[in-house]
Design a protein around this nucleic acid. Structure first.
Lengths: 203, 203, 203, 203
DNA sequence: GATGAATGAGCCTTCATTCAT
DNA sequence: AATGAATGAAGGCTCATTCAT
């Protein structure tokens, strides 16, 4: 049994090591094909020791998802602070699409979702993550509309826009795997994407 | 080695049996957790015999993807024959979103994409499939615009729209797994989705 | 998942092979120290195949206990058919004690009991086994007393005797491990044992 | 290597802590299933430090057996001092049987014996223990017979009785695990047990 | 075509033990 | 004296795949 006493600083650092290693291995081979032995080797520690830091393999992937979530939230927060959201977003679209097109990252994300649909514990993490992100997306939309105009719309409208915003980005992730050479299609996509964002972010 | 002389009618039927069984098992347990033994049992044949019909487990999933592709193409074709595409689509949105929200199907699709990113053979199938679907999507868009108006637009515009159409649907698939209780959010999503489709299908 | 369809004759024979091998390994190393790999090798088959025949390692030991039980019951049955039970028993005591003094067998028996106290499934088998043996012991005692005299005694008396008969034999098993050179003490024990059996089997 | 210079008082107390903890864990989970980590936690010290006090896990169990032995010897000694042994014993039978029926204790005892049959070091401890207990049992029997009458009997007779006395008690231990609900059968057993003790302790 | 017994590599996980501090 | 991080060997078990029949 792994105890759940306060993890020491050292343990925290070791956990990060494992998460980095695991993310790399998962990206390289997929969740199921990446062995604990490989992860351990990549992390520069023994397989046994990983189990002092994590409950089991599933626990590692859950921790990765949670860490990624925090990163996303921070990115959204930073983004919201800059103001002039729509302009910003329309301008940054190429970059955003590019980011979504890193196939290995995309694959890991897709796999996590697939896994979540059959693993209750992971599902909980994913849903919690998504709830946070969605909340931020709604705030972003409200901010972009102007709080005044936003308060005039029914909450369902905001919610629907946020969900579609999520679908749009997740859809790009999926397409980057589905569509051969997606990265080269960014110029074709960007203008269309721009118009779609306007539908979601403007009044 | 399995020879690939003319597959008999009987063999073709047996293959379908296996594909049906495998699809069911994959949906139930995921690709990696479904065992050949379980598939064989579900298909009502011996594990050994499956290897007379398919090269290996990967080969089965590739075949499933190909079969699904044909189905999708037929659905698009039927859809295009009905005319008044935009109206039709706007009307059928609730159903379409619902369809995308069958979590088990969604999970399998996501898993296939994840798998494809690391399995060249499967990637080839997925890419070929996507190419066909994208081609149909472009035709659909052109038809919806009216061939006249369509021919005025640069091909890149049509292509971008088709890709975003793909992203939209794949994004809904992903969201149905990511977002707890997505099925209940359809009323919130539908109107937003409607506007986005107009962006893609109308001039 | 192992299916529980009718086991074929072949499978039955293979099971016996495994049971023989496992009993040997367990006797040699103990239940926990005997590895499935070693059992497989001893049985002349692959580790994987054992799992087509048995659910898991625990299942093997349960099957061994059950097989041993049947053997004991047959021995008791044969014994009861000979008649003149007390005389027979008193005469065969040296042999019986000797049998109980095979240290390796004794150790396995003790370990099974210890294991049973923490493994519900094994406990069930052991208890069922013991119930059958106890029943035969009671019949043996009644037969030895003569059915007439037996029917005069309260059932509790018969039951108590049967339990003590069991304790006596199991106690010898334990002593054969506890007491260094127990096998050589048979001449010292036999006469005492004889008197104790008379207490249990005579009126 | 651990040196064995004069163990300090402190070390002795720490050893007792470990033995208490280990006995508890062994009773709860069995010798093999109890981990050093669990023992350390129960003892309120680090796993590493246990190895300053004991050679290894086997060493702990040996020490437990030795400590238990001393306890048993003290109990016998106290018992012998009371006089009127047979009466005392016959009176205390229910209690004695009850004591033997604590399944967890019984299981540990059985496991120790099983282990001893394959572990020379533990065997030595068990045999030494048994030798001491047997010696006391013989003294008890002689005392019960009256030293006069006892000296008339051949030493083998006394020895045989002592061994059977041991078998009887160990047999009850075994039965408490083998026989479901043994604790409730005490009333049925006690009178029979009484007669058997008379055979062993009376002339 | 078809079976299903059989293989064996490989996986996740546990745990006694060590050792730097 | 004491910690607890770290090791790494080994174990039970699964499963894609093969092959004799």
């Amino acid at each position: 049994m792994t105890l759940s006493t306060q993890p020491s600083d050292r343990a925290l650092a070791r956990r990060q090591q494992v998460l980095d290693a695991a993310a790399e291995c998962f990206r390289r081979r997929g969740f199921h094909a990446a062995s604990m032995a490989e992860i351990a080797k990549t992390a520069g520690m023994s397989p046994g020791h990983i189990y002092n830091l994590f409950e089991n393999k599933d626990d590692i992937i859950a921790a990765i998802v949670e860490r990624d979530c925090e990163e996303v939230l921070q990115r959204i927060a930073a983004f919201r602070q800059e103001g002039a959201l729509l302009q910003q977003m329309l301008g940054g679209i190429e970059q955003a699409i590019d980011d979504r097109s890193q196939v290995a990252d995309a694959a890991l994300q897709l796999e996590v979702m697939a896994e979540a649909s059959r693993n209750a514990k992971l599902a909980a993490v994913v849903h919690r993550t998504e709830a946070l992100v969605n909340e931020q997306a709604q705030a972003l939309i409200r901010q972009s509309l102007g709080e005044q105009a936003a308060s005039q719309l029914p909450p369902e409208e905001i919610e629907g826009r946020a969900l579609m915003l999520g679908a749009l980005f997740n859809g790009l992730t999926a397409m980057s795997v589905r569509h051969a050479g997606m990265a080269q299609r960014v110029p074709a996509i960007a203008p269309v994407m721009r118009r779609m964002l306007q539908v979601l972010l403007a009044p």
